[in-house]
Write a protein that binds this DNA or RNA. Structure first.
Lengths: 118, 118
DNA sequence: CTCGTACTACGAGGTCTATCGTACGAGCAG
DNA sequence: CTGCTCGTACGATAGACCTCGTAGTACGAG
């Protein structure tokens, strides 16, 4: 196939320089999204959206993944019908050194402390 | 006056154990509040609300300080008519080790990079 | 007591967000 | 081609949020 990709099959991401701290923090201030990021961080590779067992419908899941992608927290691409997602560690570490690690540690710590779902 | 204190003169703060990461991140996802915290972090001591020159009205300023206090990011107390505010470094460092420093570094870095107001 | 300053409380307007349901497109297995 | 699964788009709704203006309370100075 010579064409680039099917329409709607290409996903817009912000450039590294366009990533803003407030937007990232806002993206992570939602419990569902924080949980996605936490699970994503433990996975060695990228994960498909359907790998997650979230307490919301599929529509809402799509919405949350988009917020994460548009804020620059994750990178997404299609692989067949599956949409793979992975953390943008390199970009985030470059922009905000140590922030992602501290954030993930805090998220895991709180999760262990309060032991909510998942 | 026989009553304990004037109404509204006592400020409710969340206990350390009640501070939630999502709430903290949400509190810091607003540019005005992030700026308050950034200025607060450079001050050796506590500051009064009127020390800040924010691009919003006083009503809105009160609102933002309350969000920060109720999320557990800052501690506030009255000193005469002035309301003093200070970061809850000890509590935050205990709950989320390294997070506050990484956050402040990220905020300063972005501020230096983009050079917005203030 | 009176006044000025510092901050708050309340209500309103406009915007954003999270959530859902339903209907649809893209790819893969028969 | 026919289904099946994965994910999207769109519309709707209810709630939260930022902002403001006005009116009011607490404290200290004169």
């Amino acid at each position: 196939m010579t064409e680039t990709a099917a329409p709607g099959r290409v996903l817009p991401h912000p450039d590294r320089a366009e990533i803003r701290l407030e937007t990232v923090l806002h993206a992570l201030s939602d419990p569902v999204r924080l949980r996605i990021v936490r699970e994503l961080s433990t996975a060695a590779d990228e994960l498909s959206c359907s790998r997650f067992d979230l307490p919301v419908t599929k529509s809402t899941t799509t919405h949350h993944f988009r917020v994460l992608r548009e804020s620059g927290v994750i990178r997404q691409c299609y692989r067949g019908t599956a949409k793979m997602s992975g953390l943008r560690r390199d970009d985030l570490d470059d922009l905000f050194p140590g922030l992602l690690d501290a954030l993930l540690a805090a998220a895991r710590g709180q999760h262990a402390r309060l032991g909510e779902d998942t």
